[in-house]
Amino acid sequence: MNAPPSFIHDIEASAIGEWMRGNLLAMPVVNAVHVLCVTLVFGTILVVDLRLLGLLDRGRAVTQIAHEMLRVTWAAFAVAALTGALFFSANATTYWFNPAFRFKMLAILLAGVNMAVFQLITFRGVAAWDRNAPTPRAARLAATLSILIWISVLVLGRVIGFTKSVEVTVPENVDFDFSGGP
């Protein structure tokens, strides 16, 4: 295995990386905020996607739903990216070679491309199908891709926790001694 690039070492050796590793509460708090924000990103995008698929909220304008939900999505995404970067700084060299981490970053990139294509091309014609009209095939395709990609992002994020061997869980062979008191 090749050595990671030097900037990856620098990130891990940085004061922030040091702080993340050294502070007992940093990891659980950053982890919990990350999970909260990632689930918010997924949940709010799902509301928009289900409208684009024409499955729910058909009487409600697409633009209105997108406006309402995407404010929360972007705020949550920003905090998720920030907390994710804090995670990365703690164990940058390990993350660098972790396949689940790499696929997760790729999936986020794909989600961005899918969103950009939808926003710049399909969404331009939204006036024609904003309300009380079936959404075009391109919008339904973008919504389907979006749901699938974000599910992948969440699953890959969970897989990182199992392949990076930083989280400590109760060992299966933990010795229970019920004979004496604590």
């Binding site: 689930t39 918010l40 997924f42 949940g43 799902l46 929360v72 969440l154 699953v155 897989v159």
Partner: peptide, 15 residues
């Protein structure tokens, strides 16, 4: 993973 995906569904509904 399924549990976490459902957090998104449940929490956004509550939100």
């Amino acid at each position: 993973s399924v549990h976490i995906l459902m957090i998104g569904v449940v929490f956004v509904s509550i939100l």
